[in-house]
Design a protein around this nucleic acid. Structure first.
Lengths: 143, 143
DNA sequence: ATAGGCCTTCCAATGATGGCAAGGTCAAGA
DNA sequence: TCTTGACCTTGCCATCATTGGAAGGCCTAT
């Protein structure tokens, strides 16, 4: 199987397959006489594993650990679960962070009339420093 | 004010201040006789604006637009609100995406007993392709 | 005078990916 | 057999925002 076919079959672009090989994430592929990379079903399965892990947000560094466990028949499932749990926590942290950004922006946007006038609480907030949300809330409720 | 003081006062690192200057996001700072950059309160305020915008997840490209509106006294607040709304939508998209990843992982982790045995539905799923979640659910409910 | 803490510029790396260019190869059709 | 188009190869550059380091100049206090 050529790299293009392996790419189609795995969902990993040819570019990325070469990249993963260069970084050592996957072993160096076999070559034909003229230097074309050759892939077996096993290798395609490994690529699909990587693709799916990326889709779940795992950084390549963690995928390396996951692959090692995948290959290790005497692994402990606890180790896999721990990696998954860490990833879940990382995702949760980011979600909370973005949720906070979103809510802050939503409050500001709600307070902006959004017409032709120049007055805009969003710009006022951005120009006024890091505690402005609280300040703004206090100001609003204080009035 | 030196760049170090401006950095402390604005929350933007000296490194980033120089970078923003080099990319044209902020105007070139004044210089002392020996070439040190000098900053006024106005410029520090602009840096704080940038910092706060970054904290809300705006890409630098959008901050450029926000800064332009900030400076433009004949702006329409509608333009600012639109930028904020787009940012909110972008954040929401990413949140949903990460939420989906998290839930998928949570299902998988829940199904993994996490002990010393090697059997692990997480690894099975990662190795089995993109539709495995649905497949897995069907398998479980079908049994 | 010297130490250390600033400042300057330039260069490089991050992580995962896409894009482009120049050149070799293969298969099918004229 | 020759050509064409689709594939492969390597290598370099770009992204995005940020950090780090190296090499060298300046300023202040001891």
């Amino acid at each position: 199987m050529n790299i293009g076919e392996a790419a189609k079959a795995s969902g990993v672009s040819a570019k990325m397959i070469r990249y993963y090989e260069s970084t050592g994430l996957i072993p160096t592929a076999g070559r034909t006489g003229v230097g074309y990379r050759v892939y077996s079903d096993t290798e395609v399965q490994m690529l699909r594993f990587i693709r799916r892990s990326r889709d779940l947000g795992f950084p390549v560094e963690k995928i390396e650990e996951l692959l090692a466990l995948w290959r290790d028949r005497s692994r402990h499932s606890a180790d896999v679960k721990r990696l998954a749990q860490e990833q879940i926590e990382g995702l949760q942290r980011k979600i909370i962070e973005m949720q906070a950004m979103k809510e802050t922006l939503q409050h500001l946007a709600d307070a902006c009339c959004g017409d032709m006038r120049p007055d805009c609480p969003i710009l006022v907030d951005l120009g006024s420093g890091p505690n402005s949300i609280k300040d703004h809330a206090l100001t609003r409720f204080g009035q």
